[in-house]
Amino acid sequence: MPTKAVLLDIEGTVCSISFVHDVLFPYALTALPSYLSEHWNSPDFQPYRNAFPAEVRDDKVKLEAYVRELTELDKKEPCLKQLQGLLWRTGYTTGAIKAPIYEDVLPALQRWRAEGKKVVIYSSGSIAAQRLLFTHTTSGDLTPHLSAYHDPVTSGPKTLSSSYTHIAAAEGVVPEEWVFYSDNVREVEAATEAGMRAVVVVRPGNRELSEEERGRWGVVGGFDGL
């Protein structure tokens, strides 16, 4: 079947893993103490607090320690991802943070859009964080090229095939008409089980693939010519 939709991971696929770990995560942790002090009792902050486990949500010190622990372990907990997106908002909007998108991403987005394909994002980060990242990049605002966004809250964990089935149904394109790009082999495997064509993206700094993995999955080093 012809490809009608492209599904993209973010970290290690359209921007470097180091940007997330060396820029975004530290920024959120630096901003966290003052944000908690200023907004702890704000009605707007309550949904974020309430998303955390009961044993930490009512104690600033415990919640901050829990956030630091989850960040250090690179956990994908929805409560953490929602809070990180909130903290990054200031950094993006003030210009303190700008996402260093790989140079081949914008031409690929333009090409896919010109071909009439949907381009959809699926990341562990919250949808709010995804929108912020693609609005503030070194290649400009990329959101006009994107059709939709999905995260584990809306669509399920990225390592479950049912999540990809859900995304396909939500976007009105059967799984066989998708191609998914990710640096994570487990995600590629899950998408393949759902019926999508899936490709492993190998960028500088990404985990090295074994010979078995390279033989099993399609592998690309970027989006040039795709």
Rank of each mutant, 00 (worst) to 15 (best):
K60S: 09
T154N: 01
K118T: 10
K118Y: 11
V105N: 00
L63C: 08
A96V: 07
T93L: 04
N50G: 14
P144A: 03
R68N: 14
G85N: 13
Y122I: 01
R49N: 07
A54H: 13
L73E: 14
Q130F: 13
E77M: 10
L70Q: 15
A54Y: 04
T138N: 03
P144R: 08
A51P: 13
Y149V: 03
T154I: 04
V120P: 01
R113F: 02
R113L: 06
E77V: 08
G91F: 08
A65S: 12
V61I: 10
P152V: 01
Q130M: 12
T143C: 11
D59M: 13
V105H: 00
Q110T: 12
L106N: 07
I127E: 09
N50L: 15
D151G: 04
L83N: 12
V153W: 00
I127L: 08
S139W: 01
D141L: 04
R131V: 09
G95F: 09
K98C: 14
P100E: 02
S155L: 02
R89H: 09
T90L: 00
P152M: 07
Q82F: 06
L142I: 04
D59Y: 05
L146M: 02
V56P: 01
G85Y: 11
E72G: 09
G116E: 01
A148L: 02
T94N: 08
L70A: 13
K118Q: 15
L70M: 15
L73W: 06
P78S: 07
I97R: 14
K75I: 01
T154H: 11
N50R: 11
T93W: 00
K60F: 00
L146N: 05
A65R: 07
E64F: 01
A108L: 07
G95L: 09
R49A: 05
T137H: 05
V105W: 01
V67Q: 07
R49D: 08
A65Q: 06
K117I: 04
